[in-house]
Nucleic acid binder design. Structure first.
Lengths: 155, 155
DNA sequence: ATACCAATTGAGATATAGTATCAACAGGGT
DNA sequence: ACCCTGTTGATACTATATCTCAATTGGTAT
């Protein structure tokens, strides 16, 4: 019963999953990164630590962690690869500039009450949430004040 | 100036983009679907209407619409393909069961005040938001009350 | 209408991401 | 230590998205 596990590792085990080397390595890679990491980056980090871990296991672990609301895939950059965010307390919030892809994170969301209401209303058991705001960051908003595309001077 | 455009088409044009056949077709496909549609499904629908429209244009349009906060990619099923949701009034909210992937949508979110605060605090211009709740739906919650994995017959 | 120009397109080759398969292996309860 | 079952890793394979660039088209000025 060595309980020197990280909280997330414990959640994995408590949900009935084995704490395998591959899974713990993926989890460590995610935690080291601090979140906002793509699957390719996870693959890369995992490979540095132990190149015998297969790609399939990494993807399987990402899916597993997602189903446990430990991480959540989201789109930040291209429409190709998801970026995984850690959900420290089951939730995460950020702002994404849809022009330059800058991400601003923040903590408070004031959704506790809404969550409670929703559980009762939809008869569901919530494990977390992700709140994404998007728009233009300060700089991009200023730039698009001039002209939409190729900032041509209006004569 | 034929203004018999859909509101979303107008937003496209107002943002300085051309209303091309390809773009309008993709937009129509999205609107017909009602949202929660994968890129493959969009491709398929577009192809039915006009098979001369290239894949690249479909993806380009999806990215463009995303950058305008007209749609938003999100993960519902696998970690492979994003599912696009329409953002009718710039926002969207849903609950996703992390076990069976069922999606429950709902309208109210009470985030108007939070949005206003955030704009002032982060000095950004918000165009929309996506609020995802996840957890277990009623049925899945009931099932996992018994045994984690092999829960087949509830006697 | 017509002409013009830049934004946009389409085709498909290419790159990238994720999945399927299955024998071999290892976690963890007994 | 043993066993059972969940899990793994290798790789071939499929699915998905991007790149390139000549050709086209939307929209505006004429």
């Amino acid at each position: 019963m060595s309980d020197d596990l990280t909280p997330r590792a414990r959640r994995l085990r408590d949900a009935g999953h084995k704490l395998t080397h591959a899974r713990l390595t993926v989890l460590a890679a995610l935690e080291d990164s601090g979140g906002h990491i793509t699957s390719s980056e996870v693959l890369e980090r995992v490979n540095l630590v132990d190149h015998t871990i297969g790609r399939a296991s990494v993807f399987r672990t990402l899916d597993l962690l997602t189903s446990l609301s430990i991480i959540r895939p989201t789109y930040l950059h291209s429409s190709m690869t998801p970026t995984y965010v850690l959900l420290p307390d089951g939730h995460h919030h950020h702002f994404i500039c849809t022009r330059c892809n800058r991400v601003i994170e923040f903590d408070d969301c004031g959704l506790a009450q809404i969550e409670t209401d929703l559980e009762a209303r939809l008869h569901v058991k919530l494990t977390g949430h992700l709140l994404e705001f998007y728009g233009l960051c300060e700089r991009c908003a200023a730039e698009s004040t001039f002209t939409p595309s190729t900032t041509e001077s209006a004569s």
